[in-house]
Amino acid sequence: QVNIAPGSLDKALNQYAAHSGFTLSVDASLTRGKQSNGLHGDYDVESGLQQLLDGSGLQVKPLGNNSWTLEP
């Protein structure tokens, strides 16, 4: 069960990665100043990332080996 409060997208993504045990490689300029609506409930990694990114204009991309990145 994930419980991440709304706020900074950077912070939300870092909390989610730490909670879910995956690696997220992101260029900080992509997420700077963006906000997230947070995340509450049970999600697989990709669904949770998509939910956190909702409205940010960013997309999640798998890199393999439980690693992910973001792209515009």
Rank of each mutant, 00 (worst) to 15 (best):
R32G: 08
T31L: 14
P6H: 06
S67T: 14
V60I: 12
L24F: 11
N66T: 04
S29V: 10
L9H: 02
R32S: 11
P62R: 15
L52R: 00
N14W: 14
D10G: 08
L70P: 01
S29L: 10
F22L: 08
Q59S: 11
E46D: 06
N3V: 11
D54V: 15
Q51S: 08
L9K: 01
N37R: 13
E46C: 15
W68R: 00
K34W: 08
K34V: 07
T31K: 00
G55I: 04
Q59T: 13
Q15V: 07
P6K: 09
K11R: 13
G48N: 04
G38S: 01
L52G: 00
A18R: 11
D44I: 05
G21N: 09
T31D: 04
A18N: 09
W68M: 02
G21D: 05
E46V: 13
D54G: 09
Y43T: 04
S8Q: 09
V2L: 09
Q51T: 12
V60L: 13
G57T: 03
L58S: 01
L9M: 05
P72Q: 09
G33L: 05
S67N: 11
N3P: 03
P62T: 09
L52M: 06
V45W: 12
S8E: 10
G21A: 04
L39V: 06
A17W: 04
E71W: 07
S67P: 00
Y43N: 03
Q15A: 13
N3D: 11
T31W: 05
F22P: 03
A18T: 09
G55L: 05
G55F: 05
G21T: 03
L13G: 01
L49W: 06
G55C: 08
Q50D: 06
S8V: 05
S20W: 15
K34I: 10
N65D: 10
S36T: 15
P6Y: 05
N3A: 09
S67W: 11
L49F: 08
T23A: 07
N37K: 14
E46Y: 15
K34D: 03
Q50G: 08
F22D: 00
L13D: 01
G41Y: 04
Y43M: 07
E46Q: 13
D42I: 15
P6Q: 07
P72H: 08
N66S: 06
Q35I: 13
L63T: 11
L49A: 02
Q50P: 00
G7V: 05
V26D: 05
L63P: 01
V60D: 00
L70H: 03
G7C: 12
V2P: 05
S56F: 07
L58D: 00
L49D: 00
K11C: 14
V60M: 11
W68L: 04
L53Q: 02
K61P: 02
W68E: 01
D10P: 04
T23W: 09
P72S: 09
H19T: 10
Q51Y: 09
S67K: 11
K61A: 06
H19M: 15
D42W: 15
L9S: 03
S67V: 14
Y43V: 06
S25G: 04
G55N: 05
S25D: 11
Q59F: 11
G7N: 08
L53T: 06
F22M: 08
L63S: 08
N65P: 13
S25W: 14
G21Y: 06
N14L: 14
T31P: 01
Q51C: 13
G64S: 06
N37S: 10
L70G: 02
Q50L: 12
H40M: 12
A28F: 09
A28L: 11
Q50R: 15
R32V: 12
F22S: 01
L49H: 02
N3R: 11
L13W: 02
I4S: 00
L24C: 08
L70Q: 02
N66I: 02
P72E: 10
G7I: 05
G48E: 00
Q15N: 07
R32W: 13
